[in-house]
Simulated assay, not measured.
Amino acid sequence: MMPPRRLLAAVAVALLIGTSAACGDKASGFAADGRLDVVTAFYPLRFLGERIGGDAVAVTDLTKPGAEPHDVELYPRQVGEISDAGLVLYLKGFQPAVDQAVAQEATGRALDAGSVVELLAADAHEDEHGHEPGEHEHAEGGTDPHVWLDPVRFAAVADRLAERLAQADPARADAYRARAAALHAQLDALDAEFATRLRTCERREFITSHTAFRYLADRYGLTEVGITGVSPESEPSPRHLVHVAEQARATGATTIFFETLVSPKVADTIAREVGARTAVLDPLEGITEPGADYFSVMRGNLSALTAALECTS
């Protein structure tokens, strides 16, 4: 059953879509200055749109900087931006309000980043996080949406985006593909950095407040132990908190990670219980530091992991 907050958001978007649809024909998909209008759902997708689109696109992000994106709600203006866009880049199942608006307002003009790569399943032990049996944390069949935290998968999404931009704007197709190739090379280099620095570590398990790093762990042979599940709004059960504390002691964890957009209270509690410190591991769902970008945050995460896991490479 859809949580009440998401149900209300879905109803609101349905009303907004009805209003938008009554306003007239869709625009051409290009801004008055000739740039292609691209709408992105949240920060990592905005990053791709800006890097690959360059000065040929006008990017509008649906999630405000520093906002938690999972349950974003849309204003009428934003539904109109989706309707008018030349291309919408989103991740189906991550933001229900965006999914509904895209389905009704951007048919044939949207790219689902999750359709490009193989998605990992969400935590199979959802009942340990306080969920009712059978209730999925992620709307899309219990899959984990955080694909951007794996540079290899993220590079595949970048390549597909370049092709979709080229279809929408053939006159600048070569430029889109060239920028995507350059970004792909940078992501390959980042992947090599992670692989090298995480090759030899004292521990292979790390504990996070929000289970957002399974793609990163899967790529580099690590194991993530999450205090809450894929959704940061989920509440861990007392049994699961005991389990996490036991895992921390058993693995000799020195660090409990929390994230930038969610309260660190539960992470602090576990850390005090096992005598560990806390540190930030950023899931990159929104940028909070001026001047930061995907690469700087990912390298900050790498430094935090190598310190916590006592890596020697």
Rank of each mutant, 00 (worst) to 15 (best):
R6V: 15
V57R: 03
K92H: 11
L16N: 04
V13K: 00
T19H: 07
V98T: 06
S83V: 03
T40F: 08
Y75V: 13
S20K: 09
R77C: 03
A10C: 00
L7V: 10
L7H: 08
A41R: 00
Q100T: 06
G66F: 13
Q78E: 15
L91M: 04
I82G: 04
G66N: 12
V38K: 00
K64S: 12
R51L: 14
V13W: 04
Q95H: 10
Y90E: 05
S83Q: 08
G49W: 14
T19C: 10
P96K: 03
E81T: 10
P76E: 11
L15P: 04
T63F: 09
A14D: 11
G53D: 03
G24I: 02
A32L: 02
A10V: 05
T60V: 07
A22T: 12
L74F: 09
I52Y: 08
I82H: 06
S28T: 15
T63I: 05
V13I: 00
I17P: 02
G24F: 04
T40E: 01
L89A: 13
G54V: 11
L87F: 09
E73H: 10
Q78L: 11
G18A: 07
A103V: 09
G93S: 03
K92W: 09
C23V: 13
L7Q: 13
A22V: 04
S83H: 15
R46C: 00
A12P: 03
E105T: 11
G18P: 01
